[in-house]
């Protein structure tokens, strides 16, 4: 019998209630964002989606389902062991979560639902769905779940929830990890200069939505998806580790890193208009904030 890997608290029993089901869905969604957003955030993926016919999109969707099924059988995202038909239905749920994630991303960027043809929306989702659904399907492995919702599972001490100077130091470590994660992603994205094409295609009026989605997903990844240390993070009394403060601080760090990398690779310079800089930083800050969240979870 194969067992899903990476999960520390998987049970064979089914019959889970709403809290567990929603928790798994949010965790899968967060994992899908982490894996999929860097891939989705390339102009070539959009361009390929624009050219796909509806029938080609259906084939891509079917291929994504097969890949997701394999990943679910091997790893999975539900807090239980899936066997037989449960794997098939888990893969259906993973694919649906990925589709909803892509609808949120593309809608926030103004790339669907803003006068585009239905087949264009379909093509963009179909081309990008495989990496996101794979991300959902490997949630149990990507960032292992705690021993329990209340944390402390496995008897390992967590560095969260500490007070005073130690808590402040931990908060600073987390921001450093956020910077490292954002830097890792920005260095991969900025040199290929897809950002210029992306900036030209995203309506300015959508930038506030992009900011809100960046914050919402960052918060969900770290504080609402049941990944390591979530409960202790909620329990910390240090201001820098308060969920909202930490989310906003980490987002600002990601924006700062995005600004720095754009400047280092000369995508902006002293002659750039302030609004152009704002536009690029906010859009690059979207995947950078995901990577920053992953960086915070890694420590």
């Amino acid at each position: 019998m194969s067992q899903p890997r990476g999960g520390s608290s998987l049970s064979v029993a089914s019959g889970r209630g709403w809290p567990d089901v929603l928790d798994d869905a949010v965790r899968g969604l967060a994992s899908g964002f982490l894996v999929g957003v860097p891939v989705v955030f390339t102009a070539d993926v959009w361009w390929l989606g624009d050219q796909s016919s509806p029938i080609e999109s259906l084939f891509l969707l079917a291929a994504a389902y097969v890949l997701t099924l394999a990943a679910v059988a091997w790893i999975g995202f539900q807090r239980r062991v899936a066997r037989g038909w449960a794997r098939v239905t888990d893969a259906v749920e993973a694919l649906a979560i990925a589709i909803l994630a892509l609808v949120a991303i593309f809608w926030s960027l103004g790339l669907i639902g803003d006068g585009q043809a239905a087949s264009v929306a379909l093509g963009r989702i179909a081309v990008a769905v495989a990496p996101v659904s794979l991300g959902v399907a490997i949630a149990n492995h990507l960032l292992a779940r705690d021993g329990s919702v209340g944390d402390g599972g496995g008897g390992l001490p967590t560095p969260y929830g500490v007070r005073g100077a130690e808590g402040r130091q931990q908060g600073l470590y987390e921001l450093g990890a956020a910077a490292a994660g954002a830097l890792f992603l920005c260095i991969a994205v900025v040199p290929v200069d897809d950002l210029s094409a992306i900036v030209s295609r995203v309506p300015v009026r959508n930038l506030p939505v992009v900011i809100l989605l960046s914050l919402l997903v960052s918060y969900s990844v770290v504080f609402a998806s049941g990944f390591t240390g979530e409960g202790a993070r909620h329990g910390s009394d240090d201001l820098l580790q308060h969920p909202l403060v930490e989310t906003v601080a980490a987002y600002l760090v990601a924006l700062g890193v995005a600004l720095l990398v754009l400047w280092l690779f000369r995508r902006i310079d002293a002659g750039s208009q302030p609004f152009e800089i704002y536009n690029k930083v906010i859009l690059l800050g979207f995947p950078a904030s995901m990577a920053a969240a992953a960086g915070r979870l890694a420590i």
Binding site: V12, A13, S14, G15, R16, G17, W18, D20, V21, L22, R80, V81, A82, R83, G84, W85, A86, V88, T89
Partner: peptide, 10 residues
């Protein structure tokens, strides 16, 4: 653990 008998309403 299958998709049938043990599945909850959620």
């Amino acid at each position: 653990a299958g998709a049938g008998d043990g599945r909850s309403l959620a």
